[in-house]
Design a protein around this nucleic acid. Sequence first.
DNA 1: TTCCGGTCTG
DNA 2: CAGACCGGAA
Length: 219
Amino acid sequence: MSRAATITGMYHAMLATLGPSRWWPGDTPFEIAVGAILTQNTNWRNVEKAIANLKARDLLSARAMHALDTGELAELIRPAGYYNIKAARLRNFLNFLNDEAGFEIESLKTQGMDELRSKVLSINGVGPETADSILLYALEMPTFVVDAYTYRMMDRHGLAHEGIDYHGLRSIFMDALPEDVSLYNEFHALIVRVGKDWCRKKAGLCATCPLQPFLDESP
DNA sequence: TTCCGGTCTG
DNA sequence: CAGACCGGAA
């Protein structure tokens, strides 16, 4: 089976076993973008507490957050961890939104994806995973999100050569799949669920994993 | 007490 | 390349 067919098969196996994910957690594109930054190197549960702090004070808007000083913002997002550096990164993102979109994140949708992606990547504190999360989940643009779970899953299944970088792995998915926002959204969500519950960093639970049929040693 | 997870800087 | 940045779950 070709790698592309295998990847497609893994998607259908995960979807059949786990059901649809209904991602991304977030009520608005802006909230989703904030969540994408807060979740860097952090479990989503911690991010939810930080988002709740902002919501409880009616501060979950670009203008309101921009008006906070970085120290206040840091305290509010404290539960997400790395709160000092993330406050600075959020500020960089808010400045970008102000300059590029007049604080209206959805106005970014009029830009071409590749051009916008490189602009977002140029924000200090926004790396490739965060950029793709914002483009895919907040702006509904067809870019594939790669994360630590994606690396691990592909490595364990022998589908990514050692030392492959972010964009190499992203290309594997985007070359194998049709350009489809809903598909990329659901695929990443399923990978996260499998990564957390089966393809764990230590002691992967391969025997009961939805992707067990795709392991090399399996029949 | 250890484990887990992105990005930047040195 | 390694180190810095953090909280919460296991």
